[in-house]
Computed example of a mutant assay.
Amino acid sequence: MNRRTLLSSGAALAAATTLGPLAPAAAARPGREGPVCFQLPAPDGPYPVGTVALHLADTARPDPWVPSRPCRELMISVWYPARGGAGRPAAPWMPPAAAERYLASLGLPPGRVRLGSSHGREGAPVGGPPGPLPVVLYSPGADASRSFGTGVAEDLAGHGFLVVTVDHTYDAAAVAFPGGRVETNPLGGVVDYAKALAVRTADIRFVLDRLAVLGAGGHPGVCRTPLPAGLRGAPDLRRVGMLGHSLGGAATASAMLADGRIGVGMSLDGGAAGPVVDAGLDRPFLVVDTPGKGGMDNNPALRAFWSHLRGWRLHLTLRGAAHHSFGDDVLILPLLAPLLGRSASDLEEDVGTIPGRRAQAFQRAYPRAFFDLHLRGRGHLLDGPSPGFPEVGYDR
C-alpha cells in the first residue's frame, strides 16, 4: 500500500496515515471466473435499520478543492433504527455510479465485482427507543468513501443511534450525486493533508448545522429528497459523538476542538494533527491503534495529543490488526486482493493477521460501548480488559 504522511502543524511531527481501501495503481488480473460478490453480515441489534441519502450544499463556502464550484456540496447517509420497512428496498452498499467509478479506478473490469446491498431499508419510518436519538458522525479515511463505514453505522443504528456517514467531496474516492453526477479527487488522491483536515472540520460543522435544521423540523438537503416518517426532530444534538478511521480519526479530534457540540470522539487508527495536538481536549476521547508504525509507540504527534487529553480517555490497541482492519475494509480487501495481484504478505500488511470475524466483533462491540457509556450513561465493557476480547490491549 502506498503510505502517506500526515503532518502536525502544531508539533511539526509526522502522524502515520494511509490512502483509502486500495491504491488505484494495481491492475486486475484477467480471468474467466464468475463475479466476486461482497455482502456485509447482518447487524444484530434489536431494531431494523433504515437509511436515507441526502445532498447538502454549503452556499456560504466556495469549494476549497475546486474553486470553480461556487458552493461546497456533500453527500451524507443517515442511518437510524426503523419501524417496519421490510417492503422497502435495501440501500446499496455503495451507490452504483460511485461503485462503477471506484472499481474502474482499481483496474477491475465491469461485472467482475458486485458490491452488494446494505441492510438499511431506504426511507423506512423511524422507530427505536422513544424520544430523540443520540447522534454519531462518521468520517472515513483519506481517498475512501462513507460506504466503508456502513458496518459500524448499521450496528449503531440497530441499537438505537442516529448515525450520519459523510463523503468529503474531492477527498473521497468517488461521490455520486443525484442525477448521476460522480465527483472524484481531481488530484488523483489526497496530497495536502493539512488542508484536507481543515476542510473536513468545516464539513463536519456544516453537517451539524444541517442536522440542527432537521432536528427543528426542517429539511436539511438540497433536492428535497422525501424524508422518512419521524426523521424530522429525531436527532438529539445534546448528545453528539463522532468517530473516524485514519484521516477521519484525526478529523474527529480537530472537529471536537473546533465545535463544542461534539461531546465525545473515537479514532480508529487515526493520527493527530493541527492545533488539537497541543491544545488537547476536555471531553471523552478513545484512541484505538494497531501495533504498526502509526501506533502510539511510534507516533510522536499522537503521544503528544494523548498527553494533552484532560477528560475521560482510553487507549486500546487491537493486536494482530493493521491499518485496514477497521471499517468494511477488513472484509472486502481479502476478496479484492487476488483480483489485484496482491500477495498474501501484501494482504497481511493491509489487514494484519487478525481474523476478519474478530475485527468485525471488535467494531460491533467497542464503538457501541463507547457511545453507550458517554451518550447514554450505561455499559461496562470499557471498565477494563475483557476476557471476551483477548486481542484488545487496554491502557489509561
Rank of each mutant, 00 (worst) to 15 (best):
Leu13Asp: 08
Thr17Val: 15
Thr18Trp: 14
Leu19Trp: 06
Ala23Ser: 12
Pro30Arg: 09
Pro30Val: 06
Pro30Leu: 09
Arg32Tyr: 02
Arg32Trp: 03
Pro41Asp: 07
Gly45Ala: 02
Thr51Glu: 07
Leu54Ile: 10
Leu54Pro: 00
His55Tyr: 11
Thr59His: 02
Ala60Ile: 02
Asp63Met: 01
Val66Leu: 02
Val66Lys: 00
Ser68Phe: 05
Glu73Ala: 10
Ile76Lys: 05
Tyr80Arg: 08
Gly85Met: 07
Ala86Asp: 15
Gly87Tyr: 03
Ala91Leu: 09
Glu100Gln: 14
Gly111Asp: 04
Ser118Phe: 00
Gly120Glu: 02
Gly120Ile: 05
Pro125Leu: 06
Pro132Cys: 03
Val135Met: 07
Val135Tyr: 03
Phe148His: 14
Gly149His: 09
Asp155Asn: 13
Asp155Met: 03
Gly160Gln: 13
Val164Phe: 04
Val164Asn: 11
Val166Thr: 08
Val182Ser: 10
Glu183Pro: 01
Thr184His: 10
Leu187Gly: 15
Gly189Ala: 10
Val190Met: 01
Val191Ala: 09
Thr201His: 13
Thr201Trp: 09
Arg205Asp: 10
Arg210Asp: 13
Gly218Val: 03
Gly218Tyr: 04
Gly221Ile: 00
Gly221Val: 03
Val222Trp: 04
Ala229Tyr: 07
Leu231Gly: 12
Ala234Cys: 14
Gly241Lys: 03
Ala251Glu: 12
Ala255Phe: 01
Leu257Ser: 10
Arg261His: 08
Gly263Asn: 04
Gly265Trp: 00
Gly270Met: 07
Gly270Ala: 05
Gly271Asp: 03
Gly274Leu: 11
Leu281Gln: 13
Asp282Ile: 09
Val287Met: 00
Thr290Met: 13
Lys293Ala: 15
Arg303Asp: 00
Trp306His: 15
Trp306Phe: 06
Leu314Glu: 10
Leu316Arg: 00
Val330Trp: 08
Asp346Ala: 08
Glu349Lys: 04
Ile354Cys: 12
Pro355His: 02
Arg357Ser: 15
Ala361His: 08
Phe371His: 11
Arg378Met: 05
Gly379Cys: 02
Pro385Gly: 09
Ser386Asp: 15
Asp395Ser: 04
